[in-house]
């Protein structure tokens, strides 16, 4: 499972593909203060990325994957 849902935290793993967006969306809708752990994530599809941007969950861990981390940092700052 590329996404593990654990109470209020979603752990995104490896490559999160477009069809994971639906599950993520449902989950985000049901949470009052969602948290997202990206430490194990190597890439997430734009559909999932835009969900994170829309819901702005608390990112509890940035990706260990340096490339993705850089890409996300650049995208989310400012």
């Amino acid at each position: 499972m590329p996404i593990e849902f654990d109470n209020d935290t979603a752990r995104l793993q490896d490559i999160v593909a477009v069809h994971e967006a639906e599950g993520l969306y449902e989950w985000l809708l049901g949470q009052s203060s969602p948290k997202v752990d990206l430490s194990g994530c190597k890439h997430l599809h734009t559909a999932c990325l835009q969900l994170l941007m829309l819901f702005r969950p608390k990112i509890v861990a940035m990706p260990e994957d340096e490339d993705l981390k850089k890409a996300l940092l650049m995208s989310t700052e400012a």
Partner: peptide, 15 residues
């Protein structure tokens, strides 16, 4: 802008 998060089409690129 998204006014209602419950009503979005998640498979439409919005970025």
């Amino acid at each position: 802008e998204v006014s209602d998060l419950g009503m979005i089409d998640i498979f439409r690129c919005m970025v």
